[in-house]
Design a binder for these strands. Structure first.
Lengths: 228, 228, 228, 228
DNA sequence: AATGAATGAGCGTTCATTCAT
DNA sequence: TATGAATGAACGCTCATTCAT
């Protein structure tokens, strides 16, 4: 009952829960409640505290009843992961394909979107947990890779528009560099992190730096040199 | 079976274990064995698998005997964290203060050191766990902050040498941006990650990009503008 | 094997278990089973043997299931203590306020009730445990004090009826003396103690002695004298 | 090293440790240290806290070393019990056989001795533990019975002197009643118990009551009557 | 759709004990 | 005498899971 308040004011929604198969499922309501409760515990108390008992009690149920919705804890976590990842699908596309802005402005908008999202409690708390899981759970790894793949494709398109001379393989590296630079900010300037107040300045450095690399990188410049 | 095989070929050593009280080693052997076993499990199986029983069995002990070395699991984990963090102290200093190299070359060396370390299994696996813990464990938070603080100070000194005109507050933001950009690579180009083969090219982009920002950033440029 | 056989033939019942919340019994059955099992172990094997595993196995459960009924061992022990103490409430009142008997006869009845109860296995075994706990557990101390307080008030009322001339403070001392004299019998004439066969004779000495003190004590006689 | 301060100001000494066989044993010193430490823990923290580790640490040893002095914990506790019981041997005899006092005065002295001892921390804390052990440990039962037997014999002698007309079996009951009355005070007027300040008044009631019973009991009066 | 009741495994921890040194 | 190091058993407790109702 508690803890189902929205976790963030970002315009990335907390969870995007896709209704289950079989028409208008009846348990949809309880199902969402459970996923929000799980997310809330993960955010507020960390993965060690994410037990079925706690999830159940957070939404006023008894633990046994979770079995009605999810066959196992693992399944619950997978649906939670899906819902988290899905929530990022739409905003990326919207910004990247905004026809009213220049490519550079659209890149700037994307950077700001991502870095602002990073300062939300949900993102700051959840993503490090996901990165950690990634190393030992192939399912998590795949879904997280998917998410970043989508982000990178968005960045890639913008790079191509801004500097069409850059060959695809180098474009990829630059997109990766940009994406990684932003993700790395989570642990320094995320929610309640020491640098979170400086995020606006950080965003300006990031945008400036990213645009410069895109503009000035000469084809072949970052290919393996002959050691000289 | 013992799991005390070296985890990395990086010249950042796995653990820097400072002997306990006095000079004469007291159970130092078993103590190191335990910490290496704990690190190994953390790396290979993740924090959820890091139980006292598993640590003990990994070094051929029974669980009860761990209590002889560490009063509690928490204490064991703290000493492990200290040992991990301490292992970075010396390499940073060595590279940053190398008198035979220019400031730019030293920055490049530092970037390569850090990004190469990121590709080691130990770093790729352990740091995301630490980042996750950071959000709910003040002790981990403090120690991890300390580590990054040290890294940032090193970068800061090099920035000052390279572009003395940059005011301190902007220098700080740039150093943070550089550090975060590198850490973010962990999840993309770390050990067994999809981009790990591209790390050399990534390093070149990173060095180029970092040096450019340092060189070209004009004082005041990233301060909050009046929106115009 | 179940150990839920009645422990005593006294008309002080073994436990007075007050139903939990609301009217409709909720697991009341298992709850009582557990408390009786715990009492039984305490009586038969002593407090050192009173472990959750043993309690559980005594009532055919597994240890983990106890957590369903009691949040902690401490809570279980507290409810057990409450049930033990509560079992004395009603018999005391009944005897002391019996309108068909003289005050002296009622005192005699009370003495016999208490001393007979002392010869039951339950009382002989449990109370010394409680006395020992009393010294290091404030909760036990409080509840045991409450019980004796109630007994003392009962005695006090009878003393007042028998010898109204005795001032309250001396009455209190006499009531205490009477109560303590009886409790002390536990270790000598309790269940299977060397003198348990002599309890009837002991009761006669006790009644005689108590009545005499009440009758003959002159006001001021036991106040601190000037050593003369 | 700590905790070997005397526990009481009673003139019953805390422990009477009889040197071990084999001439002037060398470990006598450490042995006494250990027993005092054990007593101290039993008194201050109760039997649940009486572990070998704590005993050892209280006298600056490691747990393993206790095995040098005592083959097992049980043996240690038995020697402790012996030392406690032995400490009461001498004072009883001294008072009861004091040739300079009347029998009545000697009884009074004995009552005061015992009741004063009861108010010491050591006695208040240790004896309830012994009573509890008595119910499940035949060795403790035997030794404690011995102690009370000795006390009762002392009382018995005085009763005989005071009222030689009383037949032996009734004399025994009266002696038992007197002894039990006093022991019962432990839980009410012992160290830090609610009535401990009233002990002097209690002693006066006790002496008066005991003497009266001895004086006025008529032979046969407490034998089983024909129910009339 | 939900609860009550139970299980079995595993957790961190404490304990008495052993034994080589 | 004493310590260092280890063991095996047990402790209170938590967990995901199961299943009849």
């Amino acid at each position: 009952m508690l803890g189902v308040v929205p976790l963030t004011e970002s315009f990335v929604q907390d969870l995007k829960i896709t209704p289950r198969e079989g028409g208008y499922a009846r348990g949809q309501e309880g199902l969402e409640q459970i996923l929000y409760a799980a997310l809330n515990i993960l955010v507020e108390q960390g993965s060690k505290a994410l037990t079925l008992r706690r999830i159940a009690s957070e939404c006023g149920m008894k633990a046994g009843n979770l079995a009605y919705y999810f066959p196992s804890k693992e399944e619950l976590l997978r649906e939670l992961l899906n819902a988290i990842i899905s929530s990022y699908e739409e905003p990326f596309d919207r910004i990247v394909h905004d026809p009213s802005e220049s490519a550079e402005k659209r890149l700037e908008n994307l950077v700001v979107l991502i870095l602002d999202d990073i300062t939300t409690k949900k993102t700051t708390r959840v993503f490090p947990e996901l990165w950690a899981m990634t190393n030992h759970d192939p399912f998590v790894q795949e879904r997280v890779n998917e998410l970043y793949q989508r982000a990178r494709v968005a960045i890639l398109e913008l790079i191509e528009e801004i500097n069409p001379a850059l060959p695809p393989d180098e474009r990829e590296i630059v997109a990766l560099f940009i994406s990684a630079s932003m993700e790395g900010m989570t642990i320094f300037a995320g929610h309640e992190k020491p640098w979170c107040e400086q995020m606006p300045a950080i965003e300006r450095v990031a945008v400036k730096s990213f645009l410069h690399v895109i503009h000035t990188l000469k084809p072949g410049e970052i290919r393996a040199s002959t050691d000289a």
